[in-house]
Write a protein that binds this DNA or RNA. Sequence first.
DNA 1: CGCATTTGACCAGCGC
DNA 2: GCGCTGGTCAAATGCG
Length: 580
Amino acid sequence: METKKPEPRHRHDHVLHEEDEAHQEREENATTTMDHGPLSLHHRGATLFGHRHDEAAAAARRGEIREVDFFSLDSGARQQQDGGGGGRRVPGGGWDDVNIGLDLLTTATDATTSAEEKATARNQVHMEASAVEAELRRVLDENRRLRGMLEELTRSYGTLYQQLLQVTQHHPHQHQHPDHLMNNRSSLPRTHLNTMGMPNNTSTRQLLEGRAASSTAQTQPDADEASDEAGEASPSLSNNAGNNDGKRKISQDGTAPPRENGEQASSAELPGRKARVSVRARSEAPMISDGCQWRKYGQKMAKGNPCPRAYYRCTMAVACPVRKQVQRCAEDKTILVTTYEGHHNHPLPPAATTMANTTSAAAAMLLSGPATSRDGALLGHPAALFHHPHHAATTIPYASTMATLSASAPFPTITLDLTQSPGAPGLPLAHGGLQRPPVLGIHPTAAPAIPIPVASALAMFLPQQRGPMAAAANMPAAPGLVASRQQQQHSVMETVTAAITADPNFTTALAAAISSVMAGGGGGAHQSTTPRGGSNNGIAGEVNGSAGAAPALAQTTAGGTNVANGSPRFATQSCTTSTN
DNA sequence: CGCATTTGACCAGCGC
DNA sequence: GCGCTGGTCAAATGCG
C-alpha cells in the first residue's frame, strides 16, 4: 500500500533532510547571531527554514504539504544553486520528495481511488510544488542577497574601523582628532545600530569610544607637558576635583585647568558628571597594585558591606586629585573592588600607565558623550545607550563579562570585572583568576564579530606605551631601558594577542594585559606603605630592573619612581581592608 | 623623628 | 527638617 511505503521513505527523507537542515540551521543561526536585525530575512527564514522536520512531518500528516515540500525542494534547489552546503542525496530532485509526502495524498488515495484520481492529485501536487519551488528560489535569492549585504556591511565596518585605528595612531597629537574620529565613528555604527539594531555594532561603537577616548587620553600627555596633562579622556575625572566637584579641599588641587579641548571641556563642565571606574579583581592582597603610590586617608564602614572601605589618595604628585576606594566585595570577599576617581596630573610609571589607561578609557567611554554631541548634538549621550536606569548593570556586548555601567550611583560608574577567567587556558589573571559566574550576561552570539572590536579595545591599553613619540618625548632614559620597555610592551602585546586568540573575550584579554604588566612588568607594590620612613619616592631605589626600566612613557616622574617587579611586599602591606 | 595609618568627627548630599 | 550615608579631615597612634 502506498500509504505505508511512503512513510518510511518520508521518514528517511527527513533523516536526510535533517542533516541538510542542520547545516542550514547552523547557517541560519549564524546569520541570526550575526545580525539580530529586523531583517525580513529572519522572519522568512524562521518560517521557511526554522521548522523542525518533525513539525513538518506532523503538518504533512495533516495534509499541509507546503512546508515539507519546502525542504525537499529547497534541498534540491540548493544543490543546484549552492553546489555545496546542503547536498541533496536524492538525485531525483524534488519530486521524489514530493511524492513522499505528499502521499499525504494518501488521505485521498487511501480510499481506493482510481489511478486517474491519483494522477490528478499528482498533477495538483506538482503544480503546488512548482509554485513553492519558485517561492523558495525567490526566498533563497533574497536570503543570499541579504546575507551578502550583511557581509558587505561587516566588511566595510571592519575596514573603516581599521582605518580609524591607523589614523588614530598616526595622528595621536591632534587633540581634536579623536573628536572627529569619534564623530565619524559614531555616525557609522549608529547607522548600523539604528537600522539594523545590531548589538555587534553597538558594542563595537562603545568599544570604539573607549578606544578613541583612550587615545585621546594617552596622547595628550605625550603632546603636553606633564603639568598640563590633567585633562584627559575622562576630563571630569581629571579635573572634577578642582573644577566642579565642590568637594572641599580637593579643589585646591586644581592644578590642572580644564583643557580647551572641547571634548574635555564639555564633560568637565558638566557638574555632577563625575565618572568612576571600578575594577573588580580577585586578590588576597589588601589592594591591587596599579603602579601608583597611595596614601590612605580614611576608612569607613559602608552600608551593606561588612568589610570596611578604605580611601586612598595618590601621592605620586603633590596635588594629584586621584582618589581610589578599596573594598572587598560583600558577597565574595576574595574579590577586591577598587574604584578610581579622577585623573593623575603627573606622569605615571609604566605599570601604573596600564591601569590608568584602562580606567581612563573606561571613564572616557562613560563620559565621551558630550564630546560626541558637542559638535552635532545629534544623538545625546552615547552612554545612555548602555546605561541602565536602575542600578542595573547593562552590558557592553563584547566586553559584557567585564564592563558594567551603573547609573544608580551618585556618579556614573563603569566596572571592569577581572574576576572571571572564561576558560582561556594559560591566561594569567591578575590575582589568581578564580572563576566566578559572570556578572553579566554574555553574548555568545556576538562572537563572530568580536575580533576587531576586541582587539581594538585592547589596543587602548597599549598605545601610550608603544608610541615612539611617547618614548621619545619622555625618555631621556638609556637605550637599555627603552629596549626593556619595548620588550615589555611586546610581551603585553603577545599576551593580549594570545588571549584574543585563545578566547575572544575582552575580560580575558584585559586581565591578561594587565596581569602581564603587573606580574611581569612591575606589579608594583608601590603602595604608600613601601617607602615608609622615607620619601614617597623611596622606591626609586629598588627596581630599575626590567619593569622600572620601562619608564615607558617613562614619564620620568617623580624622582624616578619606577616599578618593582612583583614585589613581595605586595602581600605584606598593611591591610586595612582585610583587617577589621 | 618622620612618615603612614587609624579612627572619630565633621560636612554635604540625598531621601523621607 | 531630620536622619542616614558617603566622603574627607585631622589628631592620635604606631612603626621603622
